[in-house]
Design a binder for these strands. Structure first.
Lengths: 235, 235
DNA sequence: AGTCTCCTTTAGGGTAGCCTAAATGTCAAG
DNA sequence: CTTGACATTTAGGCTACCCTAAAGGAGACT
């Protein structure tokens, strides 16, 4: 059986990511993989054919790609590595939230099973990464993204940020400057009409934010287990 | 200019390591590089020729390899990465001393400048790795291995382990089981005649050890800055 | 010097992963 | 059903790094 190289891991991870955009088990177009990996379409065709021979994907010409059980297992392992490293970098080394992704991108391929175990333990066997994305367990089980989109929050109700999408680096960077990061306490103060900006209190500051951008932030009225449970004194 | 790939980094690191066995600036035989990297000699010849074109080594057929200034700079960067990771893995994740090397071997190629900075700072800008080997500074300056070989220690004089060679994994593993790791407090109790075993007190335990093996351990009668300074006897 | 041995290098190949250019399939609109 | 637009695949090549087999140099021994 051929080796699982870094490139193979990258392909599986991207296929996994892209097959979770809409409904489950979606077939992923070759072109989307190419765009995501910044690689030419022919390269993807070639690699995907190889992955099929390795039994990691199901594939039919001109009809997209699906992960096999074996492929999904590897993909989830990589996602687990990625998110564990992200959390580690952010909480232990102080790498800013908008940079952990690129760093983890390289580290995810370099984590032995032993080390994964130790890393996870050192972090307290966490369930979510610093963006609020769930970390798959060793067995491949995965929690959910918690909370509802910020624009859907009830007015004047205190809430806690549970998730910030890391898909678009630029936007994430801006959200970070606003303080809209997991754990932050927010209140939706006002919704301007006709899809106008939201007015939000973030911590002690107040800001106006476009609802499309705010939709990248999820919040929960419940204090989530991961965040410090200090909504009131007493538990 | 061609890219510095992982393979290039590995070659430079090994050339650096091998050129520091005896007197400084030694020319390194191609065969030694091959043996060290577990690669065939022709592969080394090929790569070395490439490195010369890149200006990273000086090389003449049948006459060994020397690092250029540029090559040495890169090599030291890799060594710095390696040793920072080793320290991190050992002190923060609890990876056993005899396993940090293999893990760091992969991590060393994956450390951006920003991260290196943060990692070093998080560790308190250390000067030595967990084996007691000096960590080169960002600028390329490097301290020394401290202490003298254990067999040369004065009898009955308390000392602290400052260095354990990591060259031979098997032997290192054994030394670790004896407790002969940097920071450990030792006393040389007895030297058997005719090159016979040494009797050493390590912490509270006592053990007999072959002098050849003991020579892989360096000790210092001074309590080194890195170890806890709670000695009781003078000097 | 000659010759033997032990490197080291040259010659010739292989795999992995990427690319561009050209051919081919799919689907929707006419 | 044809055709055009677009996605995808095939064909052919390139680089990086590794290999084995065979040729070539350097130093030791006679």
């Amino acid at each position: 059986m051929a080796t699982v190289t870094h490139a193979v891991e990258d392909y599986l991870k991207v296929i996994w990511k892209l097959s979770h955009r809409g409904r489950e088990g979606e077939r992923v177009p070759v072109g989307d993989i190419a765009a995501n990996l910044r690689v030419s379409a022919p390269s993807v065709t070639g690699m995907v054919q190889k992955l099929q021979v390795m039994g990691l994907v199901h594939y039919a010409r001109y009809d997209g790609v699906r992960l096999s059980a074996k492929g999904r297992k590897i993909a989830l392992e990589i996602v687990r590595h990625h998110r564990l490293w992200e959390l580690y970098l952010h909480t232990r080394l102080g790498v800013p939230l908008d940079r952990v992704d690129v760093e983890a991108e390289r580290l995810e391929h370099v984590l032995s099973d032993d080390m994964e175990e130790l890393l996870s333990r050192a972090l307290g066997d966490p369930t979510h990464d610093p963006h609020g994305d769930p970390i798959p367990t060793k067995a491949g089980a995965m929690g959910t993204v918690r909370g509802e989109p910020l624009p859907a929050l009830t007015l004047a109700t205190p809430a806690v940020v549970t998730h910030v999408s890391d898909r678009q680096a630029e936007k994430l960077r801006y959200l970070v400057t606003l303080g809209l990061v997991p754990g932050a306490r927010v209140v939706l103060l006002q919704r301007a009409p006709f899809g106008g900006p939201l007015t939000v209190r973030v911590g002690r500051k107040r800001c106006a934010i476009d609802p499309d951008l705010a939709a990248l932030v999820r919040v929960s009225e419940e204090a989530p287990a991961a965040a410090r449970p200090k909504r009131r004194r007493g538990r």
